[in-house]
Each structure stands twice: as structure tokens, then as C-alpha cells.
């Protein structure tokens, strides 16, 4: 199954928007105004579509900022520290995210697809 395509289909259905408006680089919250209940529905839908366990905190990058504070307090390498908690993201993507934090919630469509692919590989 094409993970990205299926993820876009699910997002289009849940957020009531056209699939054509969704790209890998589209932000869930900044661009598509996803709310907490939408994320709840998204987790249920991804779980059912791909038959994988979804950890809401991981996939939606919850606690990203507290982890970052922790890393700073421990004087650890920030990217490496965060990757331990979000192992489905690449180093490049994590660097990008850290540069983007000022702009608001960083979660993008491609991160969801990345999570699904990672879950499928590791299960």
C-alpha cells in the first residue's frame, strides 16, 4: 500500500478537505487547522488502515518541547536526544524541526507517513 497516498486519503476524510490540497510538506495544525479531536480520529484511522499500533505521543510529536528542555538541562546533543524519543524521524528532519520551532506546531504530513513506515518495519 502506498503509505503517503493512504495517509492523505485519511486526512482528507477526517479534516473534510480535498486530497489535492494535501502535500507531504503540509503542516497538520498550521495549514490544515487540525484540532485535538481530529488527531484522536487520525490515530484510530491509521491504526485501522495499516493495522499498526499508534502511540499518540510519538506520532504527533507531543512533548517535543519538554524533551528539548530536558536535553538542554542535561547539556546533551539536542538532535540525538530527541531522536531517541522520536526514532521514526531522520536526523535531517529533526534538524529541520528544530529550526522551525518558532513558526508553531511542526508536525507535517510526511512525518505521519514516516511513522507508519517505521512501525511497519519494526513490528
Amino acid at each position: 500500500m502506498d503509505i503517503l497516498k493512504k495517509t492523505k486519503e485519511i486526512l482528507a476524510e477526517i479534516l473534510d478537505i480535498d486530497e489535492e490540497e494535501i502535500a507531504p510538506e503540509t503542516y497538520l495544525i498550521r495549514d490544515m487547522n487540525a484540532e485535538s479531536i481530529d488527531l484522536l480520529e487520525l490515530a484510530v484511522a491509521l491504526n485501522s488502515a495499516f493495522n499498526i499500533k499508534i502511540n499518540d505521543d510519538e506520532i504527533f510529536l507531543r512533548n517535543l518541547r519538554p524533551y528539548l528542555t530536558e536535553a538542554k538541562e542535561k547539556q546533551a546533543d539536542e538532535v540525538a536526544y530527541l531522536l531517541e524519543n522520536f526514532p521514526f524521524l531522520t536526523k535531517d528532519r529533526m534538524t529541520q524541526i528544530l529550526d522551525d520551532l518558532q513558526g508553531g506546531p511542526v508536525l507535517k504530513v510526511k512525518d505521519l507517513a514516516g511513522y507508519v513506515a517505521w512501525r511497519e518495519e519494526t513490528s
Binding site: I14, L15, D16, I17, D38, E41
Partner: peptide, 11 residues
């Protein structure tokens, strides 16, 4: 209802 606009909570 959707004919007058999108409404995701319609689900």
C-alpha cells in the same frame, strides 16, 4: 448542509 460549506464535524 455541506453544499453551503465544509464542516468536518459532520462526521
Amino acid at each position: 448542509m455541506r453544499s453551503s460549506g465544509r464542516f468536518k464535524d459532520a462526521r
